[in-house]
Amino acid sequence: MTVTMGKALNAALRDAMREDETVLMFGEDVGPLGGVFRVTDGLTAEFGEDRCFDTPLAEAGIVGLAVGMAMNGFRPVVEMQFDAFAYPAFEQIASHVAKMRNRTRGAVGLPMVIRVPYAGGIGGVEHHSDSSEAYYAHTPGLKVVTPATVADAYSLLREAIADPDPVVFMEPKKLYWAKDEVSLPVRTSPFGTAEVRRPGTDATLVAYGPAVPVALEAAAAAEAEGRSLEVVDLRTLVPFDDATVASSVRRTGRCVVVAEATGFASVSAEIAARVQERCFHSLWAPVLRVTGWDVPFPPPVLEKYQLPGVDRVLDTVERLQFDDAPDPRFLVAR
């Protein structure tokens, strides 16, 4: 069956709501409209306004309501509509969602999911294309998940809803319409497991979310030029799968992290640090990164210069000192 990622997410919500009546879906425009990306399409019709409903337009209130309902027997799933619109809820997320279990010495867990459509590539105007995963991944107490495949979208969302801890579920907007042959329901590997999407021997590309298809395309193009690139899809940023990443890099001896977010103080920086800590003696070159420039995400006119593309990935791979020459970009003291 050919399924889009959006439909797979919709099916995951529907199946979770069918199986467990404590699962609720709420947020802005998620009711009769079905969400601006239609991920909640048909849920109000099937489950009624008590189970999938619209709220006032206030993100802190939405997340705060979910905290209270999760404290009292429900498993809320909330939608933040767009990445940058989640910021009003940040205090709720950082101070309460992430900390409630710890603040109460384990007495109060919050089984809730915050769905965040994120990242660029759909031509959105300003404030509609942020890659905000680092804010959440930096905050202990949250799990942070981002699918890159249709099957993972279904399986990881089901796992997020069933998880006893709060999960920030980052949905790459540009992949909502990505299709795959998938038979639903499907279960893939659990949280904390990265997947080798393409085996290779010369270098490892570590990617997640919207950057995974880019890395795969780059690996396919590199093969034509005689380079064998392995692609690791992280799938969950928290918990992080050190073992799979390190094992791949130890085999290939080279690593490029590909991510759409800005690079400074980012998840890609964390990955690079972890790889050099664990693989230093196996590395033939410094760990390099392909990220967005450290600028506010540009609206669509200049978007293509911000998004990591295949050419930029391939250029970066060529700087991995295959010819033993030092990387010219970092050679000269500036």
Partner: peptide, 19 residues
């Protein structure tokens, strides 16, 4: 739990009561 960031517990009270 006693709440330190002001008023941030108020939406929780709404959620608990509504639940």
């Amino acid at each position: 739990p006693q709440c330190t960031p002001l008023a941030t517990h108020a939406p929780h009270a709404v959620g608990v009561a509504y639940a």
